[in-house]
Every structure is written in structure tokens, then in C-alpha cells.
């Protein structure tokens, strides 16, 4: 009963900044709508450390108490996203789209998150009537307000209008908050959670899996062959390096 192919969480972060990325195409309709994001007033702490960061907004987050997909459902009717109403506004979607693409930009051979439906994923996830998603909702909706405040603080501009060089400067700061920095723990968690979900959403698409080199498992005829010759040779090589034979 307990042998579940559930991927386990991995270890704590040792953060290092990454310097190079390339933004993907984005939808201009979101860009223009997002410029109108309203910013709640926030009170900043006076400590010197906090001068780099806008305060965490702690806005009221809508509670969602829908039925979800329930205990008894038909797998084949309820696919392609949950059946709950979506709550994200277009400006919020535009922010999340840009954030996802900053976290994992397109490469020469693979698309950016925005090109494989990440906005629809964010809307489904943040709108879901389940407890884990409620935690994301709190973190992400506060975080989107915080980002606007932070951009105003750092660059005197809004997030979606900022220059690429501003985005790099922001990401370098945002992604390197120390785990020892308890004053900005929520800001750090916001980054790590956004990254975690962006990567999950991205690599569960066919394009993402392909970029990872994942081999699709398809029905086989005959016995399972085990490791490929190349994988077997690699295994024997790494064992030999530590003085073990198969």
C-alpha cells in the first residue's frame, strides 16, 4: 500500500544568482491591462536591512470554499483543469506570466513558460478550493502587490513596464535572500514557491519534459529491457570509480 511513486521534496536552498536570461514573447493585452494595478499602502519597517525591500503587504485574500471535484467523479469528464471558477484578473495574469518567464526564460531550443500555458495553470491553481492552493493564493496575491511596490522602490516604475536590466537587478536581489534573514522570510518564500510551481507547471508539459530529456514511457511488447546500453555502461563506470562492481 505504501509504495507510492510520489516524488519527495529535496533539500534546502543554497542560493546563487544567475545572470543570463532571455525574455519570451508576452501578450500585449495583458501588458496594457496590467499597468493599471492599484497599489495598497504599505508600512515599511525602519531597520537598515529592510531598506532594500518593500514591506510585505498582508492584504486580505479571498477565501474560496467550493466543492472541488469531489470524491465521486468521472476521470474522463473532469480533465483539462478543475471545474472551479477562476479568480485572477488580467493584470495579475500578466504579472504571473512575466514572473514565470523571468524565472525560467526560453532557451534556443525550448519555449518559455508563457508559451506552454503557464497563465492558465496559475489561474487554475490559485483559484482552487483546496488547502494547499489556499496557501499559494495568500503568498502569490500578496507577492504580486509586493512586487509592484518593490519596483516602485527600486526603479520608480511598475513591474510590467520595467526595462530588462531592471528585471535582472530585481531578480538578483529577490532570488538571493538568505534563509537566515528572518525579516524577509515571506519574500524569500514567495520566490521559492513561485519557482517551485513554475518549474512543476513547465516540466509537466510535453515541451518541458522534452527539454529535460525525459523519455516518454510507452507500452512495450515483451519484457522490460532495463537500462539502455549507454545507461548500463554509465552505471558500471560510476560504480567502478568508487570501487564497487555490479
Amino acid at each position: 500500500m505504501a509504495n507510492l511513486n510520489i516524488r519527495k521534496p529535496v533539500d534546502a536552498a543554497v542560493t546563487q544568482p544567475a545572470k543570463m536570461f532571455r525574455l519570451s514573447r508576452r501578450k500585449f493585452i495583458f501588458l496594457s491591462a496590467a499597468a493599471a494595478v492599484a497599489l495598497p499602502a504599505c508600512h515599511e519597517a525602519a531597520s537598515p536591512e529592510s531598506q532594500h525591500f518593500a514591506a510585505w503587504p498582508d492584504i486580505d485574500i479571498p477565501e474560496i470554499d467550493g466543492p472541488g471535484y469531489g470524491w465521486h467523479f468521472d476521470y474522463f469528464e473532469l480533465t483539462e483543469g478543475g471545474a472551479w471558477p477562476r479568480i485572477l484578473t488580467n493584470p495579475q495574469k500578466a504579472q504571473l506570466e512575466k514572473l514565470s518567464d523571468l524565472i525560467l526564460p526560453a532557451s534556443d531550443t525550448a519555449p518559455a513558460p508563457s508559451e506552454v500555458g503557464v497563465v492558465e495553470f496559475w489561474d487554475e491553481w490559485i483559484s482552487a478550493p483546496y488547502s494547499a492552493q489556499a496557501r499559494t493564493r495568500d503568498l502569490a496575491l500578496n507577492g504580486l502587490v509586493w512586487i509592484e511596490n518593490q519596483y516602485q522602490k527600486m526603479f520608480k516604475t511598475d513591474f510590467l513596464s520595467a526595462k530588462a536590466s531592471d528585471d535582472i537587478a530585481f531578480m538578483d536581489v529577490w532570488s538571493t535572500i538568505s534563509r537566515d534573514d528572518e525579516d524577509h522570510a515571506k519574500i524569500r518564500k514567495f520566490f521559492e514557491h513561485m519557482r517551485y510551481l513554475t518549474l512543476g507547471a513547465y516540466y509537466t508539459t510535453p515541451q518541458g519534459a522534452q527539454d529535460l530529456g525525459a523519455v516518454p514511457n510507452v507500452p512495450l511488447t515483451g519484457d522490460y529491457p532495463g537500462p539502455s546500453p549507454q545507461a548500463q555502461a554509465h552505471l558500471e563506470s560510476i560504480l567502478k570509480d568508487i570501487g564497487i562492481t555490479l
Binding site: A18, K19, P105, S175
Partner: peptide, 18 residues
């Protein structure tokens, strides 16, 4: 294949981008 837990791999080095 990858599932929603794969984001945990990012914690080894941290960071973002390419």
C-alpha cells in the same frame, strides 16, 4: 516523467534564469 515535485531540484543551486 517529471511531476509537480520537480521544482524541488531548484533548491540545490538556487537562482533563476538560463
Amino acid at each position: 516523467g517529471p511531476d509537480m515535485g520537480i521544482g524541488g531540484l531548484a533548491n540545490i543551486q538556487g537562482g533563476y534564469g538560463a
